[in-house]
Amino acid sequence: MVVDRRADFEASLTRTAELRGDQAGGALQRASLLRDAVHRFLKNRAAVAGAIAFLIMVVFVTITPWLSPHDPYAIDFGKAYLRPSWDHPFGTDDFGRDLFIRTALGGRVSILIGFAATVAIMLVGILYGSLSGFAGGALDNGMMRFLDALYGLPYLPFAILTLAIFGTVNFWTMVVALTVASWFTTARVMRGQIITLKENDYVRAANALGARWYRILFRHLLPNTLGVILIFVFLELPGVILGEAFLSFIGLGISAPKASWGTLAQEGYSSYLAYPYIIIIPSLCIGWLILSAFFVADGLRDALDPRSQEA
C-alpha cells in the first residue's frame, strides 16, 4: 500500500517534471567559499608570513637530524661550550653536544607533543562541548557548571598535579597532562557553536523530517564547525607548546639525554651569564613557533569568518 502510493507519486513527479522543465535558468554564482577563504588568507601578509615561518621551523626540525654529521648524544668534554661556528651553527652545550641537532631534535619533541596534545584537546573539547550544547537543558547546565569550576583553578598546577599522579614524565604523560590542563576553552567554544548552529533552519528542517539525533549531530552540526576547529588548532598549539616548555623549564619535562626546547632552555639557564646563546636559541625557537601559529590562527579567523567579506 505504502509502496503503491510512493510509486504513484514518483509517476506523477515524472509527468509534472516533463511539463515544467527548468524555469529558473541555471546561471551560477561564481563564489566558492573555500576558494574565497584561501584567497582572503593569501592576501593577509602576516598570515602568509606566519604560515611560511611555521613551515620553515617544521622543515628545520624534520630534516636537520638526517643531515647533521654530529651525534646528538655523544659526550665530548673537549668540545664543551663552543660558541656558534660554521661547524656548530648553534654552538655546543656543557657536554660538548652539538646544539644545532639538539635544537632540531628538541623541536621535534616540542612540536610533536604540541600537536598530539592539541589533537587530544580537540577531541575532548569537541566531545564535551558538542554533547553539552546538543543535549541542552539540565545536562548542559550541569556540564557547564563543572567547567566553570575547573576554569576557576589555575592552569599549571593542574598539569603538575597530573604529572605527579603519573609519577613519571614521558611523551604520553606530558600530552595527557597538557590536555587535562587546557581543554576547557575548546569545549566552551564548541558548545557555543553547536547552540548557535542548532538554531539554523536546516537543523529544524532535519527535525521536521524525523531525522534521528545522531544524523543531526554528525551530518548537520559537526561538519559546520570545521572552520572553527581549524582556527582552534592553531590557537591551542602555541599555548600547549608554551605550557610544555614551562613545565620542562621548571624541571618537569622530558628527561635527559632526550630534550625538548623547554629542557634545552633549562639546561642553558645554569650558565646563561657566560654562554647566553644556550638559553637564547631554544627560547627564540619557542617564540618563533608560537608567533607564527598565532598569525596563522588570526589569518584563518579572518579568512573563514563570512562577516569579513572583502573581495
Binding site: 524555469q23 529558473a24 546561471a27 554564482q29
Partner: peptide, 9 residues
C-alpha cells in the same frame, strides 16, 4: 519575470 537580474561583472 523569468530568470533573474544579470551578473554585473
Amino acid at each position: 519575470i523569468s530568470g533573474r537580474p544579470p551578473d554585473l561583472l
